[in-house]
Lab assay of single mutants.
Amino acid sequence: GKMTGIVKWFNADKGFGFITPDDGSKDVFVHFSAIQNDGYKSLDEGQKVSFTIESGAKGPAAGNVTSL
């Protein structure tokens, strides 16, 4: 299901970062391709987001990332 969290950091040049889930679980990798907006796909440190957990090739990653 949907989770919420805070963006820990995001490197716009490399197109990835990490989200710290509100439930205290392990930080989740986020790739820019998972960001659900029409414009420039980037996130800001400290931004609140909702997301799902998808299993990627390198382990769990955030999917369906939407800013709240």
Rank of each mutant, 00 (worst) to 15 (best):
31 H>K: 03
3 M>S: 09
5 G>L: 01
63 G>A: 15
55 S>D: 11
8 K>P: 01
1 G>F: 09
32 F>Y: 14
3 M>Y: 14
15 G>A: 03
7 V>L: 03
51 F>T: 00
33 S>D: 04
20 T>Q: 12
47 Q>H: 11
27 D>Y: 04
31 H>P: 03
48 K>N: 06
19 I>W: 00
45 E>P: 15
30 V>C: 05
58 K>D: 10
8 K>R: 11
46 G>D: 04
2 K>L: 15
53 I>W: 07
45 E>W: 15
61 A>M: 15
23 D>R: 04
51 F>E: 00
63 G>E: 11
64 N>L: 10
37 N>Y: 13
40 Y>I: 12
39 G>W: 06
29 F>G: 01
18 F>Q: 03
23 D>V: 07
13 D>K: 15
9 W>D: 02
51 F>R: 00
47 Q>A: 12
23 D>K: 06
23 D>I: 06
55 S>E: 13
2 K>D: 08
52 T>I: 11
29 F>H: 02
42 S>K: 15
49 V>E: 00
3 M>I: 13
32 F>K: 12
41 K>I: 07
46 G>Y: 06
17 G>P: 00
11 N>E: 04
3 M>D: 04
34 A>L: 03
10 F>P: 00
53 I>T: 06
67 S>I: 15
62 A>L: 02
18 F>D: 01
62 A>C: 04
27 D>K: 04
55 S>T: 14
8 K>D: 02
14 K>F: 12
9 W>P: 00
43 L>N: 01
61 A>R: 13
18 F>P: 00
25 S>P: 05
58 K>P: 09
49 V>D: 00
65 V>K: 01
39 G>E: 10
11 N>R: 13
27 D>M: 07
46 G>C: 05
55 S>R: 11
59 G>F: 08
55 S>Y: 12
5 G>Q: 00
59 G>P: 07
40 Y>N: 12
20 T>K: 12
26 K>I: 12
16 F>W: 15
15 G>N: 03
51 F>I: 02
26 K>C: 06
26 K>Y: 10
5 G>R: 00
38 D>Y: 10
11 N>C: 07
27 D>W: 04
10 F>I: 03
62 A>K: 01
23 D>Q: 07
35 I>V: 11
38 D>W: 09
40 Y>R: 12
40 Y>L: 11
59 G>Q: 06
38 D>G: 11
18 F>G: 02
25 S>E: 08
68 L>W: 05
28 V>A: 03
39 G>Q: 10
27 D>P: 08
38 D>I: 08
49 V>A: 02
58 K>W: 15
9 W>C: 05
60 P>W: 07
25 S>G: 13
20 T>V: 15
54 E>S: 09
9 W>T: 03
46 G>N: 06
51 F>Y: 11
64 N>C: 06
47 Q>K: 06
55 S>I: 13
42 S>T: 15
29 F>Q: 02
13 D>F: 15
16 F>K: 02
46 G>A: 05
41 K>N: 07
3 M>L: 13
10 F>M: 02
25 S>F: 08
49 V>H: 01
43 L>A: 02
55 S>C: 07
46 G>K: 05
60 P>V: 13
61 A>T: 13
12 A>T: 14
53 I>V: 11
8 K>A: 08
10 F>V: 04
5 G>P: 00
10 F>N: 00
11 N>F: 09
49 V>G: 00
26 K>S: 15
4 T>D: 04
31 H>I: 04
68 L>N: 10
43 L>I: 06
51 F>Q: 00
61 A>Y: 15
68 L>A: 09
6 I>W: 12
53 I>P: 04
20 T>P: 00
29 F>W: 08
30 V>R: 00
21 P>F: 04
62 A>N: 01
25 S>L: 07
28 V>D: 00
1 G>I: 09
31 H>G: 04
47 Q>Y: 05
37 N>T: 15
27 D>T: 06
15 G>E: 02
15 G>P: 01
47 Q>V: 09
30 V>G: 01
61 A>G: 06
26 K>D: 12
28 V>T: 03
64 N>S: 11
55 S>K: 15
42 S>Y: 15
16 F>T: 03
56 G>Y: 13
30 V>L: 08
65 V>L: 05
34 A>V: 11
12 A>V: 14
37 N>S: 14
38 D>S: 11
50 S>A: 12
22 D>A: 08
29 F>V: 03
22 D>Y: 09
7 V>F: 02
67 S>Y: 13
23 D>C: 06
39 G>K: 13
30 V>Q: 00
60 P>R: 12
57 A>W: 13
9 W>G: 02
56 G>T: 15
34 A>N: 08
7 V>P: 00
60 P>I: 14
55 S>H: 12
24 G>D: 06
47 Q>W: 08
17 G>Q: 00
1 G>H: 06
18 F>T: 03
49 V>C: 04
59 G>V: 04
40 Y>S: 15
9 W>L: 04
4 T>H: 09
47 Q>N: 08
67 S>Q: 13
10 F>R: 01
31 H>F: 11
67 S>D: 11
43 L>T: 02
27 D>I: 06
56 G>S: 14
30 V>K: 00
11 N>M: 06
64 N>A: 10
63 G>V: 14
27 D>R: 05
15 G>M: 04
65 V>A: 02
7 V>N: 00
51 F>G: 00
59 G>R: 10
19 I>P: 00
39 G>C: 07
4 T>C: 06
13 D>A: 15
42 S>R: 13
52 T>G: 04
67 S>T: 14
20 T>N: 06
64 N>W: 09
44 D>I: 14
29 F>A: 03
18 F>C: 03
31 H>E: 03
51 F>M: 03
18 F>I: 05
64 N>T: 08
29 F>T: 02
48 K>D: 04
43 L>D: 01
36 Q>D: 13
46 G>P: 01
2 K>I: 15
6 I>A: 07
68 L>F: 07
61 A>E: 15
16 F>M: 07
25 S>N: 10
24 G>R: 08
43 L>H: 02
41 K>A: 09
23 D>W: 06
42 S>E: 08
36 Q>L: 13
45 E>I: 14
61 A>V: 13
42 S>F: 14
42 S>C: 08
49 V>L: 03
63 G>C: 06
30 V>M: 06
21 P>L: 08
20 T>Y: 08
42 S>D: 08
16 F>Y: 15
27 D>C: 05
7 V>K: 00
51 F>V: 01
26 K>Q: 13
5 G>I: 01
12 A>E: 09
45 E>C: 08
60 P>N: 11
41 K>P: 11
65 V>S: 01
8 K>S: 07
12 A>M: 13
34 A>M: 07
20 T>L: 12
15 G>T: 02
48 K>G: 07
13 D>L: 14
56 G>R: 10
7 V>A: 02
62 A>F: 01
17 G>Y: 01
40 Y>W: 15
9 W>M: 05
14 K>H: 10
3 M>K: 11
19 I>E: 00
68 L>I: 14
11 N>S: 13
36 Q>H: 10
38 D>T: 12
38 D>H: 12
14 K>V: 09
41 K>Q: 10
43 L>Q: 01
55 S>Q: 14
61 A>P: 02
38 D>E: 15
35 I>E: 02
28 V>C: 04
8 K>G: 03
25 S>C: 06
13 D>E: 14
